[in-house]
Computed example of a mutant assay.
Amino acid sequence: MELSQLPDATLVQHYRRGNEYALEVLIKRHQAKIFGFIFSKLDDVELTNDIFQDTFIKVINTLKTGKYNEEGKFISWVMRIAHNLIMDHYRREKRTVIHNDTEQTPFFSFLKDDSDTVEELLIQNQITEDLQQLILELPEDQQEVIRMRLYQDLSFKEIAEATDVSINTALGRMRYAIINLRRMLEKKQISLSI
């Protein structure tokens, strides 16, 4: 079987065993989606190229040092890296708005303005950490749809295709995930607002 026909997890294993071409296949397979995701947040081709390259430098370093944890899908992991690099960029630049933020991501209203106090930034970081911990307590299928929707900015159609379920199933999982998150917030008396 040709490398281009192998699933992501198998290509990762090939790359970790020294087959450099396996990584090239992975990059080509996912570059449009990753590049599009980064560009949708930055709206700057040059900066998008830089962050795209930084993303894969991190991917390569993590794979080569053996620190890659094969839980979940490769593309989800790469998208998380890209998302974190975008956040790092905005923190460095002290920018206040993430372009094209969607109404479906109300949990993440990062940095309202650059007059935030250190205390407000610490609270925002705590809110993000609390939410991430709560997401880990959800059933795996609900965690997956939350990550793809909130962190990767995928449409429900893309989520349905990636997880091999109907759009209604993807929407249902998201609905139950939100219901479960609300219950956990109430039970643990956690607030996601400043």
Score class of each variant (00 low, 15 high):
M1L: 14
P7R: 04
A9S: 14
V12H: 10
R16N: 06
R16H: 02
R16F: 08
R17Y: 09
G18D: 01
L23Y: 08
V25H: 11
R29F: 03
K33S: 06
F39W: 03
S40G: 08
S40H: 03
D44N: 12
V45H: 01
V45L: 08
L47Q: 09
I51W: 02
I51N: 03
Q53V: 15
T55I: 13
K58P: 00
K64Q: 15
K64P: 00
T65M: 09
Y68W: 13
Y68G: 05
N69S: 11
E71R: 12
M79W: 04
R80T: 10
A82V: 04
A82N: 03
N84K: 05
N84L: 09
L85C: 04
D88N: 12
H89Q: 08
H89W: 14
I98M: 09
D101Q: 07
T117G: 04
T117M: 12
N125W: 09
N125A: 15
I127Y: 03
T128G: 01
E129V: 12
E144Y: 00
I146K: 01
D153N: 15
L154R: 08
S155Q: 09
E158N: 03
A162Y: 01
V165E: 01
V165D: 01
N168W: 06
A170R: 02
G172Q: 06
Y176V: 15
I178F: 09
I178Q: 14
R182K: 15
R182D: 10
R183S: 12
M184Q: 11
S193E: 13
